[in-house]
Design a binder for these strands. Structure first.
Lengths: 300, 300
DNA sequence: ATGAAAGCGCTAACAT
DNA sequence: ATGTTAGCGCTTTCAT
C-alpha cells in the first residue's frame, strides 16, 4: 500500500469496468446545454451523481432527433450504466430502446415523454400549469387571450395548449383559432413576429400566454414598439420561470419549473433501476403559478 | 458483418480503451454548471467535442479546491485523454499536475490561471476589461467610483481590481480604499449589502463597478431602496454580460465574455496537445465594452 | 488467510 | 491476405 502511494498508483477504471461489466458512468442527453432550464436539470443530476461517485457523460442533441439517436448509440457503445434523456420529440427511436433492453441499460426520460410512455420518467404537469396560468389571466379580467404555442411534436407544447383550451372553456370564453399561433423554433424572434401579426389582425388580443418565457421576451419587444402598456393594455404570461423573467420590466408572470429537483429525481430513478429495482418509476411535478407584474390588471 | 448487424453488435469501448490505452473521453471540471458563463463555455466545448466524436465527462467543483482535486483524481482514474479545468482558485493542486505529466494527460485551464502559469490556457484580459469599463465611467463624468470586487484568490477579481486602479490613475482620480469592498461569495446578496454600506458611509459613490453582473443585481436593489436613480444619481457597470444584464431596467452596461468561443478554443488546444503537439498554447481574449443604459450620464 | 490463474472484449503483433 | 495469439489491468474464482 505504501509503495502504491509512493508510485502515485491510480487504479485503471477501464480495466475495472471491463472486468465488472459495469461502469459507474451514466449518459445524459440534453437538447441544449446552455439553456437555463436544462442547466438546472443538469445541475440536479450532476450534483446527485457526484455524491454517488458516478460520472456523467454529457451530450447535446441540438433538438435534432437523428443526432439524439446517434448520441444514445454512442453512449451505449461506451458501456454507460444508464441514460437520462431529455428527448427533443414526442417519439423516441425504438431501435435503441431494443438494444438498451437487451444490454440491460435503463433509461429515464426527463421533461418530455411520448404519449402513454410506460418507462421511467420525470416531467411537469404542463396541462395544469397552462390551465392555472390562463385561469389567472381570466380572473384578472382579460377576455381575448392569445396563445403563442410550440410545435405539436413537443408534448409540453401540446399539453400547454390543451390546458389553455380547458381554462378558456372553464372560464366561459370561446376558443378562437385566430388567437393561436404556432412557433417553428420556440424563441424570442418568433414571439416578436407573432405578436405583431396578432396586433395587426382584426382581432387584437388583450393578453398573450406564451409557451415559454423566451417567447415572451419577443412579445415584450413587439408590444413596446406598438406603444402598448403591459399589463394595462395587454397582459403577458410566460412559462418556465427563466432567470430573466424575474428582472425584465415589468416582471413577467410565469410558471415555475423546479429543474434541479427534476434532475435529482431523474437521477434517483435511474439509480434505483441500476440497483435492479424492477418497478417503473414516474413522477409528475405540479406546476406553480408565479404572479408578478405582467399579468396584474388593475382596471376592471 | 451482416451477422454483427443482425445481433445488434456494438463494440465495447471499455475493451478498446483498455487495449489502446486511450479513451476519446475528456474530462471537464467547472465550478458551477448552471452559471450562465460556464454554461456557454460548456456549450463551446461540448459542441466541438461532438464534432470529433469525443465524449465529455462533466463534473462540478462547487468552488471547493479540495473537491476540484478529488474530481481531477477521479478523471485521471477514468483514463480520460485530457482535462479542461476552470479552476476555482489561483492555485491548482500540484500533486495532480505531477500525475498528469507522468501519465501524459494534458490539461488546459480556462477562465482563470495561477500567476505566471506555463501550461495551456484560455482566458479573458480582465485587466483591460476593467480598465475600459472604469475609463468609460470616468468619461461619463462620474468622479467617485466604487468597486465591489471578488476575492484575491480569484485571478480575475484581482486583475479587474488592478484594471480599476489603473483606470483611476490614468483618469486622474485618486484611489480611495474606502470605496473598495471585497465579496466573500460573489453574489447579489453581497452586492446589496456592500452597496448599502457604501451609501451609508460618509463618502457616497456616484458610480459602482462590480466584479460581476450578478453582484450588480444586488446593487440595483439597494439603489432602488434608497430611491436613487440609475444612471442619473449612481452609474452602474457590471462584468460578464449575463443574460439578465440585457433585460434588467435600466439595461446594465457590462463587459462581454465570449464563453462559447473560449470553450471551443480550450477544446482545440486540448486536441492539439492530444495529437502530440508539444507547443504550449495560450490565448487571451480581448474584453469588449457594452455600453447600455446604466452608465450613460446625461447631466454633465 | 494468502496466492495463482482465468478471463472480461478487444487490438496489435506475429505467423502462416 | 488470412488466421492466431498475447496481453491491456483489473476482479473473481479456485487452490493452497
Amino acid at each position: 500500500m505504501r509503495l502504491a502511494q509512493q508510485l502515485d498508483y491510480t487504479p485503471n477504471k477501464m480495466a475495472v469496468s471491463l472486468r465488472k461489466r459495469k461502469s459507474d458512468v451514466i449518459g445524459l442527453v440534453l437538447p441544449r446545454v446552455e439553456h437555463y432550464f436544462f442547466s438546472t436539470i443538469l445541475k440536479g443530476i450532476i450534483s446527485s451523481a457526484q455524491k454517488d461517485n458516478f460520472a456523467v457523460i454529457l451530450s447535446e442533441s441540438s433538438h435534432i432527433p437523428q443526432k439524439e439517436s446517434e448520441l444514445i448509440g454512442q453512449l451505449i457503445g461506451m458501456n454507460v450504466s444508464g441514460i437520462i434523456l431529455a428527448p427533443c420529440r414526442n417519439e423516441i427511436d425504438n431501435s435503441y430502446i431494443r438494444i438498451m433492453e437487451k444490454n440491460n441499460i435503463p433509461i429515464v426520460l426527463i421533461d418530455r415523454t411520448p404519449k402513454n410512455y410506460q418507462g421511467h420518467f420525470v416531467k411537469m404537469n404542463d396541462f395544469h400549469g397552462a390551465e392555472i396560468a390562463v385561469t389567472h389571466l381570466i380572473q384578472q379580467g382579460y377576455k381575448n387571450i392569445a396563445h403563442i404555442r410550440g410545435h405539436e411534436y413537443s408534448s409540453n407544447a401540446e399539453d400547454r395548449f390543451q390546458g389553455y383550451c380547458n381554462a378558456l372553456k372553464i372560464g366561459g370564453l370561446d376558443y378562437n383559432p385566430a388567437l393561436v399561433k404556432t412557433c417553428e423554433f420556440v424563441n424570442k424572434e418568433e414571439g416578436y413576429y407573432f405578436t405583431k401579426e396578432l396586433l395587426l389582425s382584426g382581432n387584437k388580443p388583450d393578453a398573450i400566454f406564451t409557451v415559454t418565457d423566451e417567447v415572451a421576451l419577443g412579445v415584450y419587444k413587439a408590444l413596446e414598439e406598438f406603444g402598448l402598456n403591459i399589463p394595462a393594455d395587454v397582459g403577458v404570461m410566460g412559462y418556465s420561470n427563466s432567470l430573466v423573467s424575474n428582472y425584465i420590466c415589468p416582471r413577467l408572470s410565469t410558471i415555475d419549473q423546479p429543474g434541479i429537483r427534476m434532475g435529482e429525481t431523474a437521477y434517483e430513478f435511474l439509480r434505483s433501476a441500476l440497483d435492479d429495482e424492477k418497478r417503473i418509476r414516474q413522477k409528475v411535478f405540479e406546476a406553480k403559478l408565479l404572479i408578478r407584474q405582467s399579468s396584474v390588471h388593475h382596471h376592471f
